[in-house]
Simulated assay, not measured.
Amino acid sequence: MAERPLLVIAAGGTGGHMFPAQALAETMLSRGWRVILSTDPRGARYTGAFPEAVQIEQVSSATFARGGILAKLIAPFQILGGAISAIFAFRRHRPAVVVGFGGYPSIPALAAATILKLPRAIHEQNGVLGRVNQVFAKRVDAVACGTWPTELPEGVTGDHTGNPVRRAIRDKAGSPYIPPGDHPMQVLVLGGSQGARILSDMVPAAIAELPETVRAYTRVSHQARPEDHERVTAFYAEHGIRADVQPFFHDVPERMSEAQLVVARSGASTVADLTVIGRPSILIPLAAAIRDEQAANARGLVDAGAAIMIRESLLDVSSLSEHMALILENPDGAVKMAHAALTIGLPDAAERLADLVTTLAERREIGHET
């Protein structure tokens, strides 16, 4: 009996890379493939929800974006070491396809696949290519795009697959939306997988400024950095606001499906989750993003009438509170926003990306036969 084909997924760094990688892994396993995840120690922190059948291999990698001069000098040698290890590993495992999801931890696997001329692809979650994906865009067989349109280098054609969402999100796809009213209302605050200090600075105070008729019914799930946890928890308690503050929510699908409003950064995974489950949102793009990709991610939801986008430079407590009240005091409008989010969702994004992977493998087989 022929051995099942192997997919190597290269991802790491943040949940924005790891969540769609997890979704592809789940889908390829269901199609009878074997899956290896190539990541670094930082990315390994997000592997707890990956299926047990996924083999996790940690590789040596590094980033030029953080650390001092010495760390930046050492980084190329760490990446080279990881690439050499990946070459030996690929000769042993013989992957049918290698897919990179961006971030420096994907460099060793993509470099090895390029050197060995294995079928390879990258998936870009944002509307603008990240640094690593920019490097490999012209060196892979396919560029899968999560946000459409995506800015691509001249001569590169993208495949609009959408951003794959985890099975737990797909299970909540199109969950019935309960409009805001005189009943407990859930507000979900997400700062991305790393949390966001500005949301911890602004959102609690904005909720405290809500009209009493709204605030009395508001319940908050707030993702905050560990160093902000104590002060955020204390603020909510002092103002009589029921809140669950945690550094990371492992049950985001459940919390989002129960939410009347989501206040969040506009990372690609968060935006994809919002369009699959269908919830009104207020999005605050990360101002420090060099390519302003989070604003590009939010634009589709804003244009569809599903979200309000507030630039970080324009964010203040009063305006945020006013926008929150606008949604929570207008049930008909909130329902329209929830439905509008669903109109631009691609719940089958993981299947689309899996189809692309399968096509690359089939092309290779045909090439070998001829």
Rank of each mutant, 00 (worst) to 15 (best):
M1K: 11
I9N: 00
G13F: 07
P20W: 06
Q22H: 07
E26V: 00
R34E: 14
S38L: 11
S38Y: 11
Y46F: 15
G48V: 08
G48N: 11
Q55R: 15
S60V: 05
A62V: 06
G67A: 02
I74V: 15
F77N: 04
H93V: 05
F101W: 01
P105Y: 02
P105A: 05
I107H: 04
L110D: 09
A112S: 09
T114M: 09
L118A: 03
I122H: 10
L129T: 08
V140P: 05
T147K: 06
T147G: 00
T150Q: 09
V156E: 14
G162A: 10
A168D: 13
Y177G: 02
M202G: 01
V203L: 05
L210M: 14
Q223P: 06
A224P: 03
R225K: 12
E230S: 14
A237W: 05
E238I: 04
M256G: 04
A272N: 04
T275A: 00
R279G: 01
A295G: 15
N297V: 04
A306V: 04
A307N: 11
S313A: 12
L314K: 13
S321W: 03
M324E: 12
A325F: 03
I327Q: 02
L328T: 09
V335A: 14
A338F: 03
T343V: 10
I344F: 01
I344M: 12
P347D: 01
P347C: 00
D348R: 01
E351Y: 05
T370H: 07
T370Q: 04
